[in-house]
Design a protein around this nucleic acid. Sequence first.
DNA 1: TGTTTACCATAACTGGAGGTTATAATAATG
DNA 2: CATTATTATAACCTCCAGTTATGGTAAACA
Lengths: 298, 298
Amino acid sequence: MNVSFEYYRIFYVVAKTGNITKAADELMISQPAISKCIKHLEEQLGGQLFVRTKRGVVLTEEGKEFYRYIKQAIEYINNAESKFSEMIHLETGTIRIGSSTTLTKRFLMPFMEIFHKRYPNIKIEIETRVSGELLSRLRQGLIDLVILNLPYHDDNDIELIKVKDIHDCFVVGKAYKHLVGKKMTLDEITKYPLVFQAHGSTTRRFLDDYAAKNGIIFKPDLDLAGFSLVTEFTQIGFGIGFATEDYIEEELKTEKLYKLDVVPEIPKREIGIAYSKRNIPSFCTKKLIEIILNKQVF
Amino acid sequence: MNVSFEYYRIFYVVAKTGNITKAADELMISQPAISKCIKHLEEQLGGQLFVRTKRGVVLTEEGKEFYRYIKQAIEYINNAESKFSEMIHLETGTIRIGSSTTLTKRFLMPFMEIFHKRYPNIKIEIETRVSGELLSRLRQGLIDLVILNLPYHDDNDIELIKVKDIHDCFVVGKAYKHLVGKKMTLDEITKYPLVFQAHGSTTRRFLDDYAAKNGIIFKPDLDLAGFSLVTEFTQIGFGIGFATEDYIEEELKTEKLYKLDVVPEIPKREIGIAYSKRNIPSFCTKKLIEIILNKQVF
DNA sequence: TGTTTACCATAACTGGAGGTTATAATAATG
DNA sequence: CATTATTATAACCTCCAGTTATGGTAAACA
């Protein structure tokens, strides 16, 4: 059989108005076109849909039943169209982002502000977990996007975009101000009390990696959960801390923290955006990435 | 906007198979035709539905949502088609008939047998009420068809088809056999005990009408509810009964009842089928009428 | 009662959407 | 590295969904 779906739209309007001429008006096609179309439809379906009268057309009993279904179908199609349009115009939808507390606070926040101002109807969900878990959830399609510190072990399923270089450094509070300006080796650093983020964090892994490459193993006196605690304990003079320079600009300027001059140079790191290659990013996700990169990516 | 609905059928198959080439096979149109169609659809909707890969096409997030709705719509359309086909082929449906007990038993039954044998999936409902009520329910669309005795007062909304002439007669049992063969007047009839159907029945109205036209008013000794009772009481010799000749052929043949010769001649009556002009008869109803008239009516 | 109106159906024609085939481009596969 | 599977593009064509004009007729009206 396979009736052209287009006939159904026409049938719907004719049935709704009960009048071929009016339907022609509404559909902006000529009346004979519709007469013919309905005739075809009836031929192809193998039965009468309407009885023609001089006042218009009236659905047969079978036609009425047919109409009930077609009406539903057309409502679904209308919904499909409007939902799609809404999603494309970012008038509805959800974006699920994975990010560490630090990255959320120090990096992501301003972009989210812009995003939310521009697309106020998009619901934002931010998940805070360690990168490994976030990437696994990304792979599963449970989140759309992960903000993370690079480098990260390569993964075929995941696309990485480098966004920004960040630089780490060793810092001290006023109590150890005398170390400032002196070129220190890692070996010398180990002789002071150390305030680091705990194992498991990307920062700590990076730090230990860097140390190991230079034949050193750190044994910090304080293993802290989170970036903020490190800077605070360091500030009150507990010892030498390790922090991302870009995140403590304020503290350095106001001389609450002092940067140490350490050799060999600490390599730079990068902040990256990860998204799944399998699960195609939604329009919404693309827009956020666009905002973060401040340019057209896709 | 107004995307051609036909595009949606194509979209559906492409989304379902995730492969334009396979969709082309299924739809029996060429692959480039579908490529073009999907491109058009995307242009008209103002957003991407698929991401093209070398393994086929994958729905975008928005496309997935869109698909969910379109799938529903298409299921409704399929249902519409199959339900319509079923109704047209009388594989489903209900027919609601109004008829008196007598007409059902003496007239309608054999036709219903044929109908049911031919269309076993059609549910049959027979309502038994007096004609007036049945016609009112017909007008309301609560029943499809009424079988009734004519004449009936005209009604613009109701179409009447005459089906069959029937003849009434006065009858007696063995006890009054001596009256047979004698030409009797109505006046003479009134001198015997009378066994008639009660007021309210069409038959009684017809009888009283006939009597009135000849200046007679009957005062029956027995007002009975229903045709069968009349014949039975008459048979056991209660008096003169009034019955439809066509329904007592058996009794006349086996000499349980005898027909009287009365002047003036009792006018013939007709059995009719009534259906509403407003509520277009279903295919099913038409078929039953066809069977009763034993020819193509519509 | 005759006239007008409001519909739908038919006929004859036309243009372009929606089809065709052929071919290119290219990632995935073995 | 050749083969396969898949989509995109190009150039062309055809049929049918659309057009206008007209006819027929029941209903509404004057």
